[in-house]
Every structure is written in structure tokens, then in C-alpha cells.
Design a binder for these strands. Structure first.
Lengths: 246, 246
DNA sequence: GAATAATGTGTTAATTTTACACATTAAAGC
DNA sequence: GCTTTAATGTGTAAAATTAACACATTATTC
């Protein structure tokens, strides 16, 4: 008996209900969503992890994930996980890749769709109540439960690529930020040092920064100017790019 | 009762079998793989489509896909579909994205992991026996069954991006090719016209082309030189890039 | 008020990308 | 076989982008 879309071989026109029962009888694969939640604090790129609840991985850290509800969109599942864990919605999120190795999960075949999100740690510092959840330096993570280290690496690489094409990184900063903070963020994500003057030039040229006529407070040195990111302007420009650059 | 990875809320250590039964009882989502198979012929970028076997989409074209076997890797499923439909293995393939809208499939919840592949049409022209399968100009496709138009658009965009970063496109050409053919291919994929001299300069500078001291045969004009693509050299260089450019 | 440490700013060199023209060669047409 | 035609093959100069680099200014700290 052919499988769902293999049917075309015989090429008879099937009724929906025939296919429906095929779907139900054949499928023994569970579907989950895992979230790689990035944050930025103390000039380090961080990722939110939880202690694994499986005996096999006892003591190990893992990404935040959950099974997808049969009636739930994939994006919605990712949002839900994020909301449950951080209390935040309206967060930048992007699908990364789907991981489906046969033995990636000890409980059976679990295929997982991975998303990364970018959140501002300060915003939700108080909302993490579960004391089994912690922020970890991305660059200091050696091992994770399941295949989560591989997933993290893949997501981190995608973030590094994307952040050079689109100014996503602002999602990791508070609304008001100085250029030094912005540069520290980029240096943390890309793991490089950059020239301060060229960095400033580049961002001013992009024309997404709004000078809000405020200065940093309580910094142990000469305070820098504070800026907003103009999301509207960015979205408008992005539309013009579609099909050209990306 | 919490779902698989939601368990961490209560944070008891569960046994595997407890989780296994959760997985089995909860999951009602089918998983498929769809392949966007690109080819290049008559200076046009093509995609391989099959007539839909569903009444709802009768007459409409769709991508080649199939349900994933519970014991089958995702990549393997994509390879299998390709092999079944074209007779080819050892083909360039890349995961694109996973599509999981609730109502994307009339038979129920079917989440599909999408791959694109690049194949050389000449190589396997004789292997497509099923007369319900045809090549279509990518740029002339208006409508497809399911959400396959959206999937195609997404895959095509990803191909366009990737081809500018890595010389993937060679997979679409025969082993021996002229620079004109190569440029026609890039122009077809990117939907642009390019300067012939700059194009040649760029590819010679990459240093992946091997002059095989042969000329085109049976062309209605002055024959051009033929080249091979040096995959080994490319793979070596790619390793040096890792973490720097990509 | 002197020392410190960060902010803020412009110019030049180097590299990369784009634009552009003419001689050469084989096929096609007469 | 001679002419016409249409493509191949090649180099250089301008333009745009990116990288390198130094000093005056300002608030804080001591």
C-alpha cells in the first residue's frame, strides 16, 4: 500500500477519507518545537536553558521545547513555549531547521522544528520563576542533552549570518541604547572586534537610528548618547529589498 | 497531564516508558517530505512537478513528496523520493524549511519538511517513465496544489541566496560546460543579465574551473572552451571559510 | 584640579565591484 | 572560397565599498 503522496504511482484518484485513514494508521512520529532563546547581558550572548527532566540526561541542560499540538501552528507552538517560559510575547522569532535523526530522542521518534528568538533580558528578568531555568554564555556551552548542542550551534551560526544581512540584533537590546552597547552586542554575536569609527559610520548610514537626545545615566565614564531603533523605517526599506538582496 | 517536554514544569524525573506512551497517545500529526527538484534546460530554470492525485486538486500540479517512514531519516526520505522519481542518487540536496499550517493538507494535519535538489536534466532525461511528471519553467508557474506555490517560492528564494554565496549551481550543469552555459544558468536562476567579462573574471578568480582542452561541438557559432568544476578544490576552500563567511 | 577613560568625529589607502570596446574565430550564406 | 555574421576571448579605468588609522572632547574618579 502506497503512502500518502506516493499514491501518484498507481495514479488513481483517492477519496479524502481513504487518505485520512492512511495518515492516521501510518504515522508514528512525534513532532516537537524547540526554542533557542538568545539574550544579551554583561556583554555576553546568552541562551536560555532548562535542566533536562529525563533520567538519561539528568543534570544536563537542554533547550526549551514541547510537543506540537495537533491543532496548533508551528509558529504558535514556538510562541507558546516562549510565553510560558519567559512571559514574553511579540518577540522576534525565526524558524531555523528541522532535526529528525532517528535516535535523537530516547522516548522514540521525535522530529523537532527549531526556532530561535531574540529577547531583551532586562525586560523579563523578573518573569522567570522556575529556578531550573538559567541563562548560559553561548560560547561556554560544552554539552547539552539530546542533540541540543548541535541544534544550538546551527542556530547560532544562522543568527551570525542573519545579523550581518538584517539589523535583527536590536531585539536583544533595551529600547534605549548607546552605540557602545550596540557594538558590544555585535562583537559578542560575531565573536570579533570591530573598529569603532567604521561601526558608527555603518549604522548611521543605514539610517535606522533615532537620536533621542538623552545620555547614558550612571555609567562610570563619559556618558554616550542614547538612540532608538526605527522599526518602521527598517520594515519599509526591507520591502524594497525583497527579491533583490534577499 | 503535561506534554513531552513540558514536563519540566512539575519537574519530576520520569521514566522513559511513561514518556513513550505519552508520545504515542498524543501525536496525531503526520510528517512528510516534499522535494523541490530544480533542473536547467533550454536556458530556463525548471522544477519537476507531478499531477496531484487528490480530487480537490485534480488537474493541478504539485511537488514530489511522501510521508516519512518512522524509521527513516529526513534526509533519507528526501533521497528516496528523488531516487524513485528520477532514478538519481548522489544529488545535491538541502533542507529549506518546514511548513505546517493546520489546513495545508485536506487529509488532516500534515507537516512537511521541504528540501530542494539540483540535478542535471540531461543525465536523467530517459529515467522519468511516469508521464504524469513534467518539468516546468519556474518563472511561469502560477498555481500549484496545496501550499506548494508558497513552498516553491521559498525554495527558489533560498536557492537564489545560496547560489550567490556558494558555487552550487554546477550541479545543474553537465560535467563539461562552457562559460556561456554557466552564465546562462546564473542568469536564469537570478533572473538578471550580467556582464560577460566580469562574470568570467569572477569565476576564474574563484579558481574552481578546470580547462579540459576541449571545445564545444555542434554549436551554431564559434565554439567556446569547455571546463570541469573542481569539487575537491571547492570542498577544501569551503572548510577554510567555516565560521568566517558562513 | 589633574589624571583617567571613554565618547565623538574625518581622511586616506586598499579592495571590490562595475562599466565598457575591440580583435579573433568559426559557422552560415552567398 | 569569400563575405557576412555572431559568438568567443581579453584588459583597463572609474566607482563604490570597506578597512585602517589619530586626536580633541567630556565627564568621572581620585
Amino acid at each position: 500500500m502506497g503512502k500518502l503522496t506516493q499514491i501518484s504511482k498507481a495514479h488513481t484518484i483517492k477519496t479524502l477519507s481513504a487518505i485520512q485513514s492512511e495518515v492516521e494508521s501510518i504515522n508514528r512520529i512525534a513532532l516537537s518545537v524547540d526554542c533557542v532563546i538568545f539574550g544579551f547581558d554583561e556583554n555576553k550572548l546568552k541562551v536560555l536553558l532548562i535542566r533536562s527532566d529525563l533520567k538519561k540526561f539528568q543534570g544536563k541542560w537542554s533547550l526549551l521545547g514541547d510537543l506540537v499540538d495537533p491543532g496548533e501552528e508551528l509558529d504558535a507552538a514556538a510562541s507558546r513555549i516562549l510565553k510560558q517560559r519567559t512571559g514574553l510575547d511579540d518577540v522576534y522569532m525565526e524558524q531555523v531547521k528541522t532535526f529528525g535523526s532517528i535516535n535523537r530522542h530516547p522516548a522514540g521518534r521525535v522530529v523537532t522544528v527549531v526556532y530561535y528568538s531574540l529577547i531583551n533580558i532586562q525586560n523579563h528578568k523578573l518573569k522567570i520563576l522556575d529556578n531550573e531555568i538559567h541563562w548560559h554564555d553561548v560560547n561556554e556551552i560544552e554539552e547539552l542533552a539530546f542533540d541540543h548542542k548541535q541544534i544550538l550551534d546551527c542556530s547560532y551560526q544562522q543568527l551570525q549570518r542573519r545579523v550581518q544581512e538584517h539589523p535583527l540584533a536590536f531585539s536583544l537590546l533595551p529600547k534605549k541604547f548607546s552605540l557602545r552597547e550596540l557594538q558590544n552586542l555585535y562583537e559578542a554575536i560575531l565573536n570579533t572586534k570591530m573598529d569603532r569609527r567604521n561601526f558608527r559610520k555603518k549604522f548611521f548610514a543605514m539610517d535606522f537610528l533615532v537620536d533621542i537626545n538623552e545620555m547614558e545615566q550612571d555609567v562610570p565614564h563619559r556618558p554616550g548618547k542614547l538612540y532608538h531603533f526605527n522599526y518602521n523605517k527598517y520594515e519599509k526599506k526591507k520591502k524594497k529589498w525583497v527579491g533583490i538582496d534577499f
